[in-house]
């Protein structure tokens, strides 16, 4: 009986998965459609397999191969992962665990920075970075992350840290740990789920971010994957949908692998009793 129920559950899961994945399989199918077919045939099956969409897409941009865009994206995404993980973790520790003057006010400010819609910030930010002399460099995409400007991740980590029993800190304190050593020996090891989550999102969101990269990247060879993908469709003229879909499929691969690699670390890691000892 339990076995049957297990199978039913797997089947239900597979059914849901099929629906969830259908649109993506459509992208895969359409990435093999010919230019004369892709706009008029909405079915998931290409009439004739056009594999050349992949090779055409890879070398579509004159003088720059798509590999270059992948490299640019990977570099910026990885830098963001590292910067966010470090800066948001230390900030979150301050908010979650330490008592200092003005903490609640700062916390409210931190949340407030999440609330303003981004489109009115683009121009002021650009003006600011221009004053810093950062234009024409990748600094606007990376340096702010080192200064914990991504409040989303700070708040995420705060919520996770507050799930760590305080007795552990107290035990460390009794053992003579100051806040720095408590951070290093207690909080850091127990923050793995939050760090992994931050890493996954930092990578994926940077990989998919269009607008900031568009504004700050100065030339075609410095473009990243999401910016490059939009070069295929000039709504006023030349549109190459097949190659664009082909490159979209390829662009999913690095993030998918990154996700698979990192989610493995999301394991039941905490056994607090051992630490309580």
């Amino acid at each position: 009986m339990a076995r049957v129920r297990g199978w039913v559950r797997v089947l239900a899961l597979l059914g849901v998965l099929a629906i969830v994945l259908y649109p993506l399989i459509w992208v895969l199918g359409s990435s093999l459609k010919s230019p004369t077919e892709v706009s008029s045939n909405l079915s998931i099956w290409p009439q004739e397999l056009t594999w050349s969409n992949y090779s055409d897409g890879w070398s579509y941009i004159p003088g720059v191969s798509f590999g270059r865009f992948f490299m640019n994206s990977i570099v910026i995404s990885l830098a963001t992962v590292v910067a966010n993980a470090i800066s948001c973790l230390v900030t979150a520790y301050a908010f979650a665990r330490l008592r200092f003057w003005g903490r609640k006010g700062y916390f409210a400010l931190m949340i407030a920075t999440l609330l303003l819609p981004g489109h009115v910030l683009i121009v002021p930010q650009y003006v600011l970075f221009s004053e810093f002399g950062w234009i024409d460099t990748p600094l606007p995409l990376i340096l702010p992350k080192l200064l914990a400007t991504e409040a989303f991740f700070i708040f995420l980590m705060v919520q996770f840290m507050r799930g760590i029993p305080r007795e552990l800190d107290d035990a460390a304190k009794i053992d003579g740990c100051d806040p720095y050593r408590t951070f290093w020996h207690v909080i850091l090891p127990l923050s793995r789920p939050a760090l992994i989550t931050t890493a996954i999102f930092s990578f994926i969101w940077t990989w998919n971010d269009f607008f900031t990269q568009l504004v700050y990247l100065p030339s075609v060879p410095s473009y990243t994957v999401p910016v490059a993908l939009r070069l295929f469709i000039d709504s006023s003229g030349q549109t190459s949908i097949g190659p664009m879909l082909a490159m979209s499929v390829l662009s999913l691969l690095p993030v998918f692998l990154f996700f698979l690699g990192f989610q493995r670390f999301l394991v039941q890691g905490i056994n607090t009793s051992g630490l309580k000892g």
Partner: peptide, 11 residues
Amino acid sequence: PTWQAFTGYYD
């Protein structure tokens, strides 16, 4: 030279 598609150009 720098170029891009129409979407986002004016932005």
